[in-house]
Simulated assay, not measured.
Amino acid sequence: MRGRKGLVFAVAVLAVLGLAVLLVPPIVQLDERLVDLRSAGLPPSFAHPLGTDEVGRDVLVRSIYGLRVSFTVGMVAALVSITIGGLVGLVAGSAGGTLDRVLMRIVDGFNSLPHLLFGIFIVAMFSPSPVAVVVSVGVTHWTTSARIVRSEVLSLRSRPFVEAAISGGASRARVVRRHLLPHLLPHLMLASVLMIPHAIWHETALSFLGLGLPPHMASLGNMINDGQRSLLTGGWWASLAPGLFVVLPTLAIAILANHLRDRRSPRRRSELSL
């Protein structure tokens, strides 16, 4: 979904969900351990717009809480991943030589590992918690940003203003701080935006498998996992609602990130429109 309509859709979805995440939790307090078996498995109605789950919890309220948890974990995990990858790419591109080759071989080694299986191995060493998910995503998804930063640093090193600074006696730290980082920050910001949907899906997958967040915590992966049992009794809404809360915001973020990338690369945008 590209063009103005896609951008409007993305902004509208993020605005509505953002307001819901900000306004609903202070108004509707959720006790994650409270159950109400008298209201278990109710279909969508005026009192419960998205129905209730198998233990009587409101699906809409839990989905909003789960969206807040998943987005928070996803953003922190993306920040960790971008920070690790950015530092590795900056060091590799700036130093060059043997250190660059060693770091790139490490990147190749991490890329050869299946991300999800490696992430499962990492979270299995911890008890289910947000910290375990952040560590899992951060350790398994930094390689892409490392390659992006390294390639950009190698390109910048051949620019006249960088060569002039080096010829003028500027230290490596000063060149990095004054000339490289200002040009790298936009790329890192775009990479972090693109990483957030991936981190959310990763957290959802781990929680769905029972390895991410604690089972009682309202997260989208836990809700989808709980909802699959309701499918056998016709409770389709218990899985559909959290599934939509995963798909819609991640799709909106991806559209917004693609729009920002096209704005930064007009040549690429014109080639795609041919």
Rank of each mutant, 00 (worst) to 15 (best):
H179M: 03
G210W: 00
A124T: 13
E163S: 12
H187S: 14
L248P: 10
P242G: 08
L116P: 07
H202Y: 13
G66H: 03
L79Q: 02
S230H: 02
R105M: 06
F9K: 09
S127I: 05
T204G: 15
P44L: 05
S70A: 11
M125T: 14
G89S: 11
L194D: 00
A170M: 08
V176N: 02
A252W: 01
R157K: 15
G168D: 05
V24K: 02
L67F: 10
R174K: 13
V193T: 15
A124S: 15
G234I: 07
H179C: 10
S219L: 00
I122L: 15
R33C: 00
D226F: 07
T250Y: 06
R150I: 04
E163C: 02
Y65T: 07
V61M: 01
F208T: 08
V55K: 09
G169N: 04
L185N: 07
D31F: 01
A95Y: 11
A173M: 10
E163F: 01
L17V: 11
V102K: 05
V21T: 13
L7T: 12
A241D: 05
V55H: 07
I27P: 00
H115Q: 13
V16Q: 01
L103M: 14
P214L: 04
R172H: 10
A20E: 02
V8R: 09
V35S: 13
S136L: 08
A218H: 09
I27M: 07
G210D: 06
L23E: 03
S63K: 03
R101Q: 14
